[in-house]
Computed example of a mutant assay.
Amino acid sequence: MPGYVWSAVRDAPVRELFPGIRQRPLWRGDGGASAQVLEMDPDSRWEGIDVHDPGPEEVFVVSGVFNDGHRDYPAGSFIHAPAGSSHVPQTTTGCTLFVFYPEG
């Protein structure tokens, strides 16, 4: 179909953001919107605070249990973090997340 973009997680380049936390970019659209998979090993933690700027962040927990520094989100959870909000991504079990930034 014209305009469709397809990518496979297994073929996406891997970038280590922090020890035990890997990013796999899947798509980047006009205006900065993007989609990625974030893989977090057990007992990994984001270094510092993740601030959602300039726009919101939307997360779907594919597997494992994700913690934002306040509560646990098991597989199947959806999280919408509005622009300007922040959290400290972490996990004790390990997790895989689908992350979408609709505004960059």
Results as ranks from 00 to 15, higher is better:
Phe66Cys: 06
Asp30Pro: 07
Pro25Arg: 02
Gly69Phe: 00
Val5Glu: 10
Ala8Met: 10
Glu16Thr: 13
Gly3Asp: 14
Met1Trp: 15
Pro102Asp: 15
Asp41Ile: 01
Ala12Met: 07
Glu103Tyr: 04
Gly94Thr: 11
Gly76Lys: 09
Trp6Val: 13
Tyr73Glu: 10
Arg28Asp: 12
Asp11Phe: 04
Thr93Val: 11
Met1Val: 14
His52Arg: 08
Phe18Gly: 01
Gln90Pro: 01
Pro89Val: 06
Gln23Thr: 00
Gln36Val: 01
Ala83Gly: 13
Thr96Gln: 14
Val5Gln: 09
Gly29Met: 07
Glu47Trp: 00
Pro42Tyr: 09
Gly104Lys: 02
Gly20Thr: 02
Val99Pro: 00
Gly3Arg: 05
Val88His: 02
His70Glu: 11
Glu57Ser: 08
Gly69Asp: 06
Ile79Cys: 09
His52Lys: 09
Gly48Pro: 03
Gly76Cys: 15
Pro82Met: 02
Ala12Gln: 09
Val59Leu: 08
Arg15Glu: 13
Phe66Trp: 15
Arg22Ile: 03
Ile21Leu: 07
Thr96Asp: 05
Met40Ser: 04
Tyr101Ile: 02
Asn67Trp: 02
Pro74Arg: 11
Ala33Val: 00
Pro13Thr: 04
Val5Cys: 08
Asp50Ser: 13
Val99His: 05
Asp43Thr: 13
Gly29Glu: 05
Ala75His: 10
Val37Trp: 04
